[in-house]
């Protein structure tokens, strides 16, 4: 718990047994007063680990979605703090404004200078409102592309972190061309001549996620989700109503978990989360994400730009499942 981001609130029913153990630990710790843990305390710690790993190894698709949305789950700016040095945020799309739902800037990750692009949901209520809970507007996607172009010009690799329920559905976002902004990003990212690596750190909701995820390598965190539509959206349409009964059914049908996306060849890797999820230990989560990014960039940096772009094209070109005959 010591590593967790302040403000951690356990909100998930399936975590109740863990919450109970943690309550007992807290009670004992206050008695011990911070000195060497008693045997009883050590037992409780061990029990907590066991219950945590048992709970988290058996999460359903819908429970996974809820972990991916946990309010204390690390967001792009947390990863900036935990794995980047010398972050230099760059604002604005030079056309309309600056969308806080997508953060862009130069950063150093391990030995690499990179351009970082990531969805930001916000943590406090005012932040969440200004970030629209991670739902970007067209100017967010246009800002991302503008900065990616600068990275291309200066031969700086691009790292994107995906965490959005979907692009924002509003009157103004339609008026300013939400669809066009995403479409242009898909086309342009496919031919950018520097390495691009993507990690889905939380929610990978539809076109709003893909709009910054046309990458040479794509990983998902163990409890992230990535799909063509949110489970609620899918349930509302195919089950006629999104509710406690239909959301889990939709989540299961959509094959949205990291393992399923890996098995279906839609992502390249799954990055394991700390026991009990990224929100329980953001520091070790960020270390794992950093290690994966650094490894991919080292491999991709060996390719010339033509090969890189050709391989990226082939990667998406070959995705699909169909029959050649009826």
């Amino acid at each position: 718990m010591s590593n967790a981001i302040p403000g951690f609130v356990a909100t998930m029913d399936f975590e109740q047994p863990i919450v109970e153990i943690e309550r007992q630990i807290a009670a004992l710790e206050s008695k011990v007063g911070g000195s060497v843990p008693s045997d009883e305390l050590a037992t409780l710690y061990a029990t907590r680990e066991t219950v945590l790993s048992k709970t988290y190894s058996g999460l359903s698709a819908w429970q996974t979605v809820r972990v991916a949305r946990h309010p204390a789950r690390p967001q792009t700016l947390d990863y900036v703090d935990l794995m980047c040095r010398d972050f230099c945020q760059l604002h604005g799309d030079r056309r309309f404004g600056d969308d806080p739902a997508i953060v862009t800037g130069f950063a150093r990750i391990g030995p690499w200078k990179v351009l970082l692009v990531g969805h930001q949901k916000g943590r406090t209520t005012p932040e969440r409102i200004s970030c629209r809970f991670g739902c970007a507007n067209p100017e967010g996607y246009r800002k991302a592309l503008l900065k990616m172009r600068i990275a291309e010009k200066f031969q700086i690799p691009i790292v994107t972190l995906v965490d959005t329920p979907g692009a924002y559905p509003g009157v103004e976002s339609e008026q300013r061309g939400q669809a066009e902004a995403i479409a242009v990003n898909l086309r342009e990212m496919s031919r950018i001549r520097v390495p691009i690596v993507t990690v889905v750190i939380g929610e990978g909701g539809s076109g709003g996620a893909l709009g910054i995820a046309v990458a040479d390598r794509v990983a998902m965190l163990e409890y992230a989700w990535y799909s063509v539509i949110s489970p609620e959206g899918c349930a509302a349409i195919l089950w006629k109503e999104a509710n406690e009964r239909t959301n889990p059914l939709a989540a299961k049908s959509l094959a949205l978990t990291a393992r399923e996306n890996l098995a279906n060849g839609l992502v390249d890797a799954v990055i394991q989360e700390p026991i009990g999820g990224a929100h329980r230990n953001p520091k070790s989560m960020a270390a794992a994400v950093q290690a994966w990014i650094v490894e991919q960039l080292s491999e991709l940096s060996r390719l010339d730009a033509d090969t890189l772009v050709r391989q990226r094209y082939e990667k998406f070109r070959t995705i699909g499942s169909l029959r050649s005959h009826p």
Binding site: S206, L210, A255, L256, F316
Partner: peptide, 8 residues
């Protein structure tokens, strides 16, 4: 699902 998304 994801197969459709990637067609985009």
């Amino acid at each position: 699902s994801g197969f459709s998304l990637m067609q985009m």
